[in-house]
Computed example of a mutant assay.
Amino acid sequence: MKLPDFSRPALRASMLGAVALLVTSTAFAHAHLSSSEPAANAEVAAPSEVTIHFTEPLEPAFSKIALADTSGKAAVATESQVDKDDARVMHLPLPQLSAGRYAVHWIAVATDGHRSQGDFAFIVK
């Protein structure tokens, strides 16, 4: 098997371009939701918190979770927090929730400054 000749300028330039593209796409990634507890559209017993896992570390000062009840009113007075041990995880402690549908709205600002947001709902039995 013959190995590529990396001394050729064209091959060397294309390899450097590929590495630069990989580094650039990784450095400017947005924090996207990878999973949550409760999961989207789940029917659950009243949870004690909402936990969301993201694909990138979060900037705590600008990332948050909000919870609204069926009427659209805020269901929680406490603030969410980014996990101290894993900056890709955010928690929202919950009071005892009544049965009903709840909407979760999240805003995630990655440590590189890119902002993403989303919504999902769950039902308390």
Score class of each variant (00 low, 15 high):
Ala13Lys: 07
Ala99Phe: 01
Leu3Val: 08
Asp69Val: 02
Thr24Cys: 13
Ser34Phe: 02
Leu22Cys: 14
Ala66His: 08
Ala77Arg: 15
Thr111Ser: 12
Val109Asn: 02
Phe28Glu: 06
Pro95Ala: 10
Met1Gly: 12
Met90Pro: 05
Ala110Tyr: 04
Asn41Tyr: 07
Asp112His: 10
Asn41Pro: 03
His114Leu: 07
Leu21Gly: 15
Leu33Glu: 12
Ser71His: 10
Ala75Phe: 04
Phe28His: 12
Lys64His: 08
Lys64Asp: 04
Ser116Gln: 04
Leu94Ser: 05
Ser7Pro: 09
Gln81Met: 11
Pro95Trp: 07
Lys73Gln: 14
His91Asp: 00
Asp69Glu: 04
Asp85Ile: 15
Ser14Cys: 09
Ala74Met: 04
Pro38Val: 03
Ala110Asn: 01
Phe62Thr: 12
Phe122Glu: 07
Ala68Thr: 14
His30Gly: 10
Ser48Trp: 13
Lys84Trp: 06
Thr70Arg: 15
Ala99Met: 02
Ala46Gly: 00
Pro57Met: 08
Ala39Glu: 01
Ser25Ala: 12
Val82Ile: 01
Leu16Trp: 03
Ala18Met: 13
Pro9Val: 09
Pro60Tyr: 03
Ala66Asn: 11
His91Gly: 02
Val89His: 12
Leu92Lys: 06
Ser25Cys: 08
Thr24Gly: 14
Leu16Thr: 07
Ile52Tyr: 00
Gly100Val: 01
Phe54Leu: 05
Ile65Asn: 04
Glu43Tyr: 07
Asp85Tyr: 13
Leu3Ala: 15
Leu3Met: 11
Ser71Cys: 08
Lys2Tyr: 15
Pro4Trp: 00
His53Gln: 10
Phe122Gly: 06
Glu59Lys: 01
Ala39Met: 05
Lys125Ala: 12
Asp5Arg: 06
Phe62Asp: 06
Glu79Phe: 06
